[in-house]
């Protein structure tokens, strides 16, 4: 406790960021330390699960120490521990979970497993103190693309999700074939700024009428086919134009479906969260659309878009206050539904 307020230690290790954070009550971030493994995985062109797990284990304890130090507290001051329990890479998740479970047991404090998507949504609360449910959320990252109706802090209804690749995954794959490197999101965003988004018309996949699901594997194939055609023609490939055209195709689908979902659920607030919510075109398009259609739009600053433990701590505190506490049998759930 600090000034009579609950202190939550948040831990996140679901993919390639090792993160620990200290949160005061639900929304005040005292520290949010993130050890990124991007450089480690660049050599492999993507996240290698075994290597990610090894680095999480190397990083986890020093990262927790830094988070405590920055918040100017010790482990004994912590009132509850929140940890991502899924979805994610199982070998990565279990580093955070084994650590959180052991600490909760020793400190005799409540342990709260947090769904990664609930974490991403909670990231928006941190910077928008006035935001309260209900609202409509688009959670879009390297591992997820979901439209979620958030009816209360711990009540969610998934209205649609990707049937194949996540949007961020498509960005990584397209960046690789364009020779831009890894991670794809920021690299395509940058290249697209220098290109013509109408140079190539990639097919927008909307699936069945009324569906709020997504499919991004087709557009990735579309880009590959386009590259091959250009090669056969002996034409020079314009990487920036291709990146810009691909990006626009993805963002049009994301924006359109989110607006449709918000209208359907009669929500007046829209939240975008997850790694791809840092994309400059998505932010701009959503801003324009929301302004035109009369929705309030909320999104986190880029650092809270990436995987981080502050959002996990925030979500854990909301769960704790609703009495949603886990026991020592908490496990990793790599494919957990929200």
């Amino acid at each position: 406790m600090k000034d009579n307020k609950l202190i939550t230690l948040g831990i996140e290790t679901s993919c390639d960021e090792t993160s620990a954070a200290v949160i005061l009550e639900e929304r005040e971030v005292l520290s949010n330390v993130i050890a990124s493994q991007i450089k480690v995985h660049q050599a492999f062109g993507g996240v290698v699960p075994e290597i990610a797990s090894r680095h999480h284990l190397n990083n986890i304890n020093p990262v927790i120490d830094s988070a405590l130090k920055e918040a100017d507290i010790t482990l004994r001051d912590v009132d509850l521990i929140g940890v991502t329990s899924g979805p994610g890479l199982v070998g990565a998740l279990l580093i955070g979970l084994a650590t959180a479970k052991s600490m909760a047991y020793v400190l005799k404090k409540p342990l709260i497993g947090v769904h990664h998507i609930q974490g991403h949504i909670s990231a928006v609360y941190i910077e928008h103190k006035e935001l309260e449910p209900p609202f409509l959320a688009l959670v879009v990252s390297g591992g997820h693309t979901s439209i979620v109706d958030v009816t209360d802090y711990n009540k969610y209804e998934v209205l649609g999700h990707t049937r194949d690749d996540a949007a961020g995954e498509a960005f990584d794959k397209v960046a690789r074939v364009l020779g831009l490197g890894y991670p794809g999101g920021p690299l395509i965003d940058e290249a697209a700024k220098k290109g013509n988004p109408h140079a190539v018309e990639f097919k927008r996949v909307f699936l069945e009428k009324d569906s709020l699901d997504f499919s991004f594997s087709g557009i990735k194939t579309g880009v590959l086919n386009y590259l091959n055609t250009q090669k056969l023609k002996g034409a020079q490939l314009n990487v920036n134009d291709t990146a810009a055209s691909f990006q626009l195709a993805v963002m049009e689908v994301l924006t359109a479906k989110t607006i449709v979902a918000a209208k359907r659920t009669k929500r007046d607030k829209i939240v975008i969260a997850g790694g791809v919510a840092a994309n400059s075109l998505l932010r701009q398009m959503m801003k324009d659309e929301c302004e035109r259609k009369g929705f309030d739009l909320y999104f986190p600053s880029p650092i809270l878009c990436t995987d981080n433990a502050a959002m996990i701590g925030c979500a854990a505190c909301y769960k704790y206050k609703s009495g949603l506490v886990d026991n020592l049998f908490l496990d990793a759930y790599p494919n957990k539904a929200l």
Binding site: D65, L75, A98, S102, M103
Partner: peptide, 15 residues
């Protein structure tokens, strides 16, 4: 190995 080492380290860190 990682479950064991992570747990042992966290116990040591908290105690």
């Amino acid at each position: 190995i990682r479950i064991g080492v992570a747990s042992a380290r966290a116990i040591a860190q908290a105690l």
